[in-house]
Amino acid sequence: MKIKTIPKYTVYLLLVLAASIPLFFDIKMPNKPVDSSAATFKSLMTLEKGDTVLLGTDWTGSTRGESKAELIAILRILMRKEVKFAMWSSADAQSPRCAQDVITEVNAMMKKEGSREYKQWEDWVQAGFYPNSDVAINNVGQDVKKMFSPKRGTDSTGKLRSVMESPVLEKIQKIEDFKLVIDVTASKTSDFHVQFISSHKVPMIFAVTGVMVPETDVYYNSGQIAGFLGGLKGVYDVEVMMDKGLNVPDKDGKIEVASTKVTDQIAGFPGKDNTGSGSKYYPTLHFALALMIVLVVIGNVEMAMARKGAKNS
């Protein structure tokens, strides 16, 4: 029995077209944020000016489509709310470079919208890369001051000093002093955060890839983390909430973006440019998925017909 109706090169070509053509159009998708995205949005929006968060970035170019988009959305919120952050990595030596490029990109966005640009040392610090994720994350949970003290950065006068002396980390003595622990990850570091930091009673949120959504959902549903952004859907959710707020009624009293689990009214950043990769990629993803479903159906029908034909002959 041989099935050969659609050549594989045609399938590849169709996929390239489905993954490219919708990118040229501004397509609006109806959307209801999932609970985990709404909870993440709440955790980020309740931060106040001057708060400090620990931001783990454990992704590289291989998951750029999701992880970079998640980091951009998170950084936009942190920078608009003037929250300081200490960035660190433990999964891959490429991670710090990838994240620093994103900070540069988001700074350019902030400049374009007339907001203040973030300065290294004053507003954020690079706390370094540490191999052996499990041991590194355990050490951060046990003694963050001892862990980050050897890492030096250039202060505003050009002197090399320990990052713990920076305005970002000078008040941090232990992990509980951070208002929020964030991990943008494409690896097992989310598990290690749960294993070694969750017992310290510091709120944690993750931004994970689509593959990791089912396993991360367990942590969210059991209350081990405050929320998480799951893949492209998570990015689109947070971009929509940044634009329209959460549980915020419009002039007619109608709530466009609502969540039954997160009942607080949280205003977003109306009037600002909140679109990012989520808004650009999410509609395109639907076209690609629709193509896949059509091809699966065609393949199954073909197979059924071929079997029937073989039986009859």
Binding site: L15, T63, G65, E66, G210, L232, Y281, T284, L285, A288
Partner: peptide, 9 residues
């Protein structure tokens, strides 16, 4: 979905 997102990116 994740793999498709990477292709789209």
């Amino acid at each position: 979905m994740m793999r498709f997102t990477l292709v789209i990116d």
